[in-house]
């Protein structure tokens, strides 16, 4: 128990320092007065790897997608243009989704039909979002990113998921699309069958989510999960797993726009992907050893601070 308290205390201290650093003006990091390179390139590579590693750990503990933390924080601390940070953010979210997808599909937690029904329109809007995002002036990107991140913090703070929503009657569209399923629930130790309702509303919401994910290079788990769970009425485990699967399709679509617009640099994307993946694995091991609720609240605070900082940058402050 003592160890748990120490670990939680350690996480809190780390996150508090992190949040305070985020609130410092950008000039303190030399971010707005960029090159010529005073620091060797490989130092930034190692720093990005280490940073993404820690981000991966706290993202898992807090139950927050790494992609949503990556863009606002890395664009604050590192000298990379936000175009490349968004490109890397999409690839971080995409590679995480690809590596998590297979076991979730095999266990029936992620549902192919539910995902495919939502992903087609969402991926098209994701492409549109990426094109708009890369065409916008930098200060507008920062302003809208800041506002979006602040909105995400509020959603995360307020949303209350429902583990097993009750659906009295599935809607017509979900019946036509054969969207229903059964999965083995480890907690209940039994098979749970599920169905959904309000499918057309869900599709409309996924258009908005796809657009924002493409525009800012954010993973969209923060929005996918509440829509699957609270709007469509899928069980929480199915919502989380299917969200990851939808994300792999939408982020693929948006990533290609970034690739064609030249907004992907392997020097920025690969250390981020590798660091985040290793961090996520370590974070999953620490999950039972720290007070996740406390860490989650602090991560949401950190996210809000990153949003505020992006907003201030957008205003040129």
């Amino acid at each position: 128990m003592d160890h748990r308290i120490y670990r939680t205390f350690g996480s809190i201290s780390f996150l508090t320092v992190f949040t305070l650093l985020l609130l410092l003006p950008a000039a303190a990091f030399g971010v707005q007065t960029p090159p010529p390179v005073q620091t060797e390139w490989w130092v930034w590579e190692i720093a990005l790897f280490v940073f993404s590693f820690f981000l991966g750990i706290i993202a898992v503990i807090a139950g927050v997608g790494g992609g949503v933390l990556f863009v606002p924080i890395v664009s604050s601390f590192f000298p990379f243009h936000i175009d490349f940070v968004r490109g890397a953010g999409l690839l971080v979210a995409l590679s995480g989704a690809l590596s998590a997808g297979s076991p979730l599909l095999k266990k029936g937690l992620a549902n192919l039909k539910l995902a495919l029904s939502m992903a087609l329109i969402a991926s098209i809007s994701s492409i549109a979002g990426a094109m708009v995002g890369l065409a916008m002036p930098e200060n507008v990107v920062q302003l809208s990113l800041g506002a979006t991140i602040l909105g995400i913090s509020v959603i995360m703070l307020l949303s209350k998921n429902s583990a097993y929503p009750e659906i009295s009657e599935p809607d017509t569209l979900s019946k036509i699309l054969h969207i229903y399923g059964i999965y083995y629930d480890e907690q209940l130790k039994k098979d749970v069958s599920w169905q959904i309702h309000r499918t057309p509303v869900g599709i409309l919401l996924f258009i908005v989510i796809g657009f924002m994910a493409g525009m800012f290079g954010l993973g969209a788990g923060w929005a996918n999960v509440p829509v699957f769970n609270l709007v469509l009425g899928a069980p929480l485990r199915v919502s989380v797993a299917t969200s990851i699967f939808v994300l792999s399709i939408n982020d693929t679509a948006a990533a290609w726009v970034y690739l064609h617009k030249g907004a992907v640099l392997p020097l920025i994307a690969v250390p981020s992907i590798a660091g985040m993946m290793i961090g996520t694995k370590i974070g999953a091991r620490l999950l039972t050893k720290v007070h996740t609720r406390v860490v989650r609240k602090l991560v949401i605070t950190l996210l809000a601070a990153a949003g505020l900082r992006a907003l201030l940058k957008g205003f040129g402050i």
Binding site: V37, W42, D83, L267
Partner: peptide
């Protein structure tokens, strides 16, 4: 080289591609 990319990674994607021939598309 990586060092050359690092000299320009603060630029917008479109501007960086005018200066250095990194792969895209």
């Amino acid at each position: 080289s990586p060092a050359e990319v690092a000299l320009h990674w603060h630029l917008r994607a479109a501007e960086l591609h005018k200066v250095v021939a990194v792969p895209s598309g």
